[in-house]
């Protein structure tokens, strides 16, 4: 059985179908109505959405929020690693998913104990479908990797340690 499970719609505690709270056409019609009135601002708040329309020098600005505007949870990234004295941290240039090999099923770029140059590629970080090489950044011996393969990492996170 494939892994598809039905979960409740985020905003639906009544069991009734969700309805698009405000289509772009609705907003345009609302604005043509407001344009005929001495009104520069409209705030509308329902259980399902909030709409704020503000008139500026060049036209209207709209802010719509469906459901809560509380920031979404960000994915939990690997814990920060302290770099011991005498070692250099190899850092991820971008936030994303860190990979040790060029593609699944292929050998890693480098292994623990391998010697590296400053520009040796030790891994890839995938951010928004774009792959960026992670270079050792220092010549020496790659002591160990600090995060497992295919781990979510923050920008500048230490992914490996090099002994110069």
């Amino acid at each position: 059985m494939a892994g598809a499970t039905v979960i409740a719609p985020i905003n639906d505690d009544t069991g009734a179908p969700n309805v698009d709270p405000l289509s772009p056409q609705d907003a345009t019609e609302l604005i043509s109505l407001l344009d005929q009135l001495p009104v520069d601002e409209l705030e509308l708040s329902t259980e399902r959405f909030t709409l704020s329309l503000r008139r500026t020098g060049t036209g209207w600005v709209s802010r719509t929020t469906v459901g809560s505007s509380t920031p979404d949870d960000q994915p939990v990234a690997a814990a920060a690693v302290a770099v011991p004295d005498g070692l250099v941290g190899v850092r991820s240039p971008l936030p994303g998913t860190f990979y040790r090999s060029p593609r699944p099923g292929t050998p890693p770029f480098v292994g623990d104990g391998d010697s590296v140059e400053s520009d040796t590629v030790v891994g890839l970080v995938e951010t928004m479908k774009l792959f960026t090489s992670v270079a050792a950044g220092a010549a020496g011996t790659l002591v160990e990797f600090c995060v497992p393969d295919a781990t979510s990492v923050e920008q500048d996170a230490v992914v490996a340690l090099v002994k110069p």
């Binding site: 598809a4 719609p9 905003n11 969700n18 469906v66 459901g67």
Partner: peptide, 8 residues
């Protein structure tokens, strides 16, 4: 938030 039903 807009869909009638959501399937994971």
């Amino acid at each position: 938030r807009l869909a009638d039903r959501v399937v994971r």
